[in-house]
């Protein structure tokens, strides 16, 4: 931790040991939150959204060679009076007291929005803008959080209301992302590789459809959500009935989907909404495969 941050903590009466004792200081990347979404992401555009600072769980720290264990320590990268332009440009934010920090930053949320990426339902990471502000907001938020008494529901609500910030949030298209994920899992058993992307028009507007291209082939399918799900269902059914695929592989696929359902609520929701048969297959007492 550099002197700039040490002075900041002292100036605003931070009790670092209390914060460490009572709060989670960890930083999560999109991969930490949900590696499936991070790997198979298909977006459905961005929207202005008020988000609770507590739900902005981190950023992709690895590219800055930062640690993920302590967001307050990481402030030294972004605020350093002896550093380069990047770490000196927002030093004035360190002077703002806890009571005023959100209010004083309000104008900036409109002028120069923080761009977030949805990492999973209700969880966001900084995408392309807002790292300096995230750190200062989180620091003050964690300070106030640590000062709350155990079970102080009203205090928590006041904190939530205070630390709601306007952002631009890049949203996940869960149907397309998870369908792409499952499609690629099956394709792997056949040694295939598909290029699955959202379709957009000449002006960059998403059409709501996906394009699927088998690598090395010149054919492209363009499908809406209903068609995409139908294709996926057909592929899964064909796979489970394919005699050239071993029972072991089929069971492995079903078990894998089952584990993923248990691990990620958003995936469970997707499966229940679109592939109820697969859900039943995963959690029936006897898994019958062809």
């Amino acid at each position: 931790m550099n002197n700039t941050i040490l002075k900041f903590l002292e100036r605003h009466d931070f009790d670092l040991s209390l914060i460490k004792k009572k709060c989670d200081l960890g930083v999560k990347s999109s991969k930490d939150v949900n590696p499936i979404i991070a790997k198979y992401y298909i977006g459905k555009g961005e929207e202005q959204q008020r988000i609770y600072v507590a739900d902005i769980v981190g950023y992709d720290y690895s590219y800055m060679n930062l640690d993920n264990s302590n967001i307050i320590d990481n402030m030294s990268y972004f605020y350093n009076e002896n550093g380069d332009g990047y770490s000196t440009r927002s030093l004035s934010l360190l002077d703002i007291p806890t009571d005023e920090i959100v209010y004083r930053l309000m104008g900036s949320f409109t002028r120069d929005p923080m761009y977030l990426m949805e990492a999973d339902k209700g969880k966001y990471v900084i995408d392309s803008n807002g790292l300096h502000r995230l750190h200062i907001l989180k620091a003050h938020y964690l300070k106030e959080l640590s000062e709350l008494e155990e079970g102080d529901a009203i205090g928590h609500k006041i904190l939530e209301d205070k630390y709601m910030v306007e952002t631009m949030a890049r949203k996940v298209d869960y149907l397309k992302t998870y369908s792409s994920f499952l499609f690629q899992q099956i394709a792997r058993y056949y040694g295939c590789d598909f290029d699955i992307r959202p379709q957009y028009d000449d002006y960059g507007e998403l059409t709501g459809k996906v394009t699927i291209e088998l690598r090395g082939k010149n054919e492209k399918l363009v499908l809406n959500d209903k068609q995409f799900i139908k294709l996926l269902k057909d592929e899964i059914a064909n796979f489970l009935n394919d005699n050239s695929i071993s029972k072991k592989d089929k069971k492995h696929f079903i078990d894998f989907v089952g584990q993923t359902i248990e691990e990620y609520d958003s995936f469970k929701e997707y499966i229940k909404q679109n592939l109820q048969e697969i859900y039943n297959e995963c959690f029936s007492d006897e898994v019958e495969v062809g």
């Binding site: 198979y40 590219y63 990426m117 992307r197 002006y203 998403l206």
Partner: peptide, 30 residues
């Protein structure tokens, strides 16, 4: 030109930030 397309490896986070800041929309990853 009406539309530009950028395919950027995740390690190129500086260029990613520049493109996103300039109005680039992240639509998929492969």
């Amino acid at each position: 030109a009406k539309l530009l397309t950028f395919d950027l490896p995740e390690e190129q986070y500086r260029m990613i930030n520049i493109v996103a800041y300039s109005g680039g929309r992240y639509i998929s990853i492969k």
